[in-house]
Nucleic acid binder design. Structure first.
Lengths: 261, 261
DNA sequence: GGTGATTTGTGCGTATGTATT
DNA sequence: TAATACATACGCACAAATCAC
């Protein structure tokens, strides 16, 4: 392919990126195979190393390729784990359709032949304004954050943070720096705050530096953010913000009357 | 700030990026203000232009900054439009909680003081394997795709594609290259295929080149992808895949018993 | 309407650092 | 240890878009 630049043409590096994209789509390299090394691409296309890197940058930022220093440039693998974020109330399933004790995650992973582990942290912070809003608190009020860091086959998968008003958590096991058997909803049940409804907000964005580090997310891998505000008959109970590495997860919502398949 | 690189330190451009991130967070530039020009940053930090560009690249890919040739580098604006992807059946709302005629979008935009317009296309294609799967078709069977391109204040906002089995659409207005009053569900109702349930899958990824062009999405702006498979009592009805520019949209799901706020 | 100054975009070359094999 | 391959960093030149005059 000739990528010399004429007038009215796209820049070289973009044309090079397009050609590499085409060769990838054509299956020239399979699986997680390595691409030709940069020096080889320089020669194949007769361009400077800089131009090769600009082109590969494009595909890396699209999430198609990953670069590994000292090894090479590789096709990126994409295998996702579905998570049931919600089931229709009538879908047969042990427990509530809003509840999500840790066992749910473990089971989903096992069903997919994969292994899910988790770390736990508890912290007390001043609420972000959007969280305070949804909990019905004044801005800057203290909230208890219970954070679950989930790993899939040892790779970072999601960060789940449950936010409780300090008043609600006081005097309960939610103040302890340990996960609770049966999930936090067990505690909520004990104090008569059974969640009956929720509103989820879903968005996506690129990770910040700390997030990119924890998720081991290179360029081209967005985060998917699920923010769930739950309610009982008295009012707001908690806000759960869960961040997923988008290249490893997909969320599923069962809506309306479930259909047997 | 001194960003000379010592041993064991992060690379210059990363430290420069971190410092710029800090200055942005500190509010040194407000609104959509311009950052110092590249030459100015070169001098401030005493580095080569290349290094400045690498650092700014980082922040652009995080979605924090945008660059405009001939003008400068600017803070990126983020204003999102919420879309009600699902409402609890008991939430008061005209029409079904699964249905989404165009009017819903228009109303949501109006409520936010913005204007939503749309273009329509109809095409007949061989089904992608995942679509065929969910429609219960053999791979490669023909499907009718009804595509709605939605613009918010004239800016690209979402692409919605409804996929119907060719057999189902035959002989109905779904074969016409025009939108249907009341939405496609009006046609489905007429032929006795009232959707009673659905399964949504949500994911996020970076746009491909055509998508990036249509969405006018620079680097750092992911797509959010919602795939809804709907059912009536007889089986699959349609698959709706909607792609949103993640920096302009947020999806809302009302779950369980709705709570008055 | 045009001209030049400003600012980012593209492209080349070179050298050296660092991780992997 | 040596070779390989990507990462970082410098410098330079010109193109293309924008804007002020």
């Amino acid at each position: 392919m000739n990528i010399s630049r004429g007038p009215g043409q796209a820049p070289k590096y973009q044309r090079l990126a397009a050609d590499l994209r085409r060769r990838i789509a054509a299956g020239e390299w399979q699986g997680e195979a390595a691409l030709p090394v940069e020096a080889e691409l320089e020669m194949q296309y007769g361009v400077a190393r800089n131009t090769v890197r600009l082109a590969v940058d494009v595909l890396v930022n699209e999430g198609l390729l990953i670069r590994v220093q000292g090894k090479g440039t590789f096709l990126k693998d994409r295998s996702v784990l579905d998570h049931h974020a919600y089931r229709s109330p009538s879908e047969p399933w042990p427990g509530d359709s809003l509840a999500r004790p840790s066992e749910v995650y473990t089971e989903e992973a096992q069903a997919a032949g994969r292994k899910l582990t988790a770390d736990f942290e508890m912290l007390i912070v001043r609420a972000r304004t959007d969280i305070a809003d949804r909990l019905g608190l004044r801005p800057g009020e203290a909230v208890v954050v219970r954070r679950m860091l989930r790993l899939l086959d040892g790779e970072p998968w999601s960060i789940e943070e449950s936010h409780f008003a300090a008043g609600l958590a006081a005097g309960t096991p939610l103040m302890e720096p340990d996960p609770v058997d049966g999930g936090d909803e067990a505690v909520l049940g004990d104090i008569g705050r059974v969640e009956v409804g929720a509103v989820d907000h879903l968005s996506a964005r690129m990770p910040g530096p700390e997030e990119a580090q924890w998720f081991q997310a290179g360029p081209g891998v967005p985060l998917m953010v699920q923010t769930r505000a739950t309610y009982d008959t008295r009012g707001p109970v908690r806000v759960i913000e869960t961040r997923y590495s988008a290249d490893r997860s997909r969320l599923r919502y069962g809506l309306g009357t479930p259909v047997v398949r």
